[in-house]
Design a protein around this nucleic acid. Structure first.
Lengths: 229, 229
DNA sequence: TTTCTCTTTATAAAATCTTTATACATCCGT
DNA sequence: ACGGATGTATAAAGATTTTATAAAGAGAAA
């Protein structure tokens, strides 16, 4: 991934345009939404790397939106608001916002704060190349090699594997995996998971019938173990 | 760890006092330094969870200090400065600062920004591992090791063990265990407990016939004792 | 179209939970 | 010490839930 995908949730057309131009001219990919409802849906479907959220949306209270977003969305959220009261700022930050800028803001400062927020969220998951037995996973290039041969993974397969890699050793519940890969509306579709786990195993395990990397934790979820070589 | 350890690097005595009182009354542990040199040394020796850095230090340029700090220090750094120029802010953020507040700042906002920065840095790395003799229980990964080998526990077995671990040393009644693991409708199914206790012992005790970890309290319940090593 | 991927359905296999059966232990009054 | 009452341990059969996998259908992109 070269540049991040940023979702703008703001109802003012002018602000949207300004942000879009600013961000795109800095090579970010941009999507936008004008209402809370639309914003939540786009966030779920696009899984953006960051959200810029205006607190003054027409259809719902901004703090409420942030709270609901934070129930499942873990990437950075920066608040842009005309509200400059300490109360609003404290509330937003405590509801899980990573930063808060008062409108009108300075463009270069916004860009710097975006870089800062992205940096700290990416640094944790940033192990450029992970090696497990004969498997090499390059998260920044989105590629997977097995015995030095590139493996072809579909988008969903890769998303799943990347989650496993970033939480190596931990048991990831069905709920969690479904929410992260398919979105919060799919947490009951355990069958999807089974199908894709089977496909992944076929592609990365030495013996798919006796999996050693993706371990089943029956009734709970799956666990990825990485025997480093 | 309950509350974070914060290092204040600021040469103004008044500011130091203000910050110290504010932070301590919010249960943070505080250390301080009045010069860049002292700050670097304290940071290295104390390994604080966060640094509040004033850019206007007497002995060295603040941006330089930040850069040198970031060569090895990975926890959050928040800049507190009288400089409010966009240039300074952008530079500091790009040098690795997590946030930038202009003095004079609002106290509650500072506290909220501290919480926000700590939240995002602590979320991943916190892995409390409990060790009892040759047993290691990682509650956040939901895994159990014995003699450094993963043990396979079923969901129910794990739930039971996790209850014991979280109430180490206390007698847990049959009622309580049944209610917590199976639900309130099962408080009379003592036989379930016996079956699962036997299975757990087979998996974690050195000699299941002479249990040393899961102790029977006849007529009452069971007690988990943890000989830490 | 053709190809690729995701979704859905079907079914067999595996794992887990529940239930039953039986043996053992301990306490207590005689 | 004996016998009964109560409580516990364990194995193993059975029922149920969960998982693995193939394969067909749907939909989108080349």
């Amino acid at each position: 991934m070269d540049k991040a995908d940023i979702l703008i949730i703001d109802d003012e057309i002018q602000m949207q345009k300004l942000l879009e131009i600013t961000l795109q001219s800095n090579q970010y990919r941009v999507s936008h939404a004008a209402t809370a409802k639309e914003g939540m849906m786009t966030a779920a479907s696009h899984q953006p790397d960051m959200i810029l959220l205006d607190l003054g949306l027409p259809d719902e209270d901004g703090h409420k939106v942030l709270q609901r977003l934070r129930e499942w969305y873990t990437n950075p959220v920066i608040i842009l608001s005309v509200q400059s009261s300490e109360e609003d700022i404290v509330k937003a930050l405590d509801n899980g916002a990573n930063d808060y800028l008062v409108k009108p803001f300075r463009t270069r400062e916004l860009l710097a704060r975006i870089r800062s927020a992205l940096r700290s969220s990416f640094s944790e998951e940033n192990t450029p190349v992970l090696t497990c037995e004969d498997l090499q996973i390059d998260l920044s290039a989105r590629t997977v090699k097995r015995k030095n041969e590139f493996i072809k993974l579909t988008a969903t397969e890769y998303n799943l594997l990347s989650l496993f890699v970033r939480h190596e050793g931990k048991v990831l519940t069905h709920q969690y995996l479904l929410r992260e890969v398919w979105g919060p509306g799919y947490i009951n579709q355990s069958q999807y998971l089974r199908v894709f786990i089977a496909q992944l195993r076929k592609k990365i395990e030495t013996d798919p019938n006796r999996p050693e990397m993706i371990i089943t934790e029956s009734g709970v979820g799956y666990r990825f173990v990485c025997k480093e070589s």
